[in-house]
């Protein structure tokens, strides 16, 4: 199926940028994202193909520019909505609560 993920052979990309001594995870949230992704599929009854497909359905600009684990989480959000597990609104409401708590303690 055609899509932005079908990138093999596409023209227009520059050099492959590498990072010396790259860590496995670049920030604490990447570790959490990896673990959340690792367990959630089994918990909500989705498989790896569905996860990949959800990533492929991200908007092309997000697909090409977002952090790898950010793409995982945005795609997981789609699957959580589609399985009726959690809505985007619930996630964003919790984000607002967490952010307000932080400011209180800041």
């Amino acid at each position: 199926m055609d899509g932005i993920h079908d990138i093999g052979g596409m023209h227009g990309f520059g050099p492959v940028e590498r990072e010396e001594n790259e860590p496995v995870f670049h920030a604490p949230w990447e570790r959490r994202a990896f673990g959340v992704e690792f367990f959630t599929g089994a918990g909500i009854g989705t498989n790896g193909d569905q996860s990949r497909h959800a990533i492929e359905r991200l908007p092309a600009d997000v697909y090409l520019t977002a952090n790898y684990y950010e793409k995982w989480m945005l795609a997981l959000q789609t699957l959580l909505e589609e399985t009726g597990t959690l809505s985007r609104a619930e996630i964003e409401a919790r984000m607002a609560e967490l952010s307000a708590e932080e400011q209180d303690h800041g």
Partner: peptide
């Protein structure tokens, strides 16, 4: 915290509360 860090934290909390992770 960045939007994505906050989002992951919110998702982990909510999924923990549901017993999924």
């Amino acid at each position: 915290e960045s939007d994505i860090a906050l989002r992951v934290k919110a998702m982990e909390q909510l999924l923990t509360e549901k017993g999924i992770v």
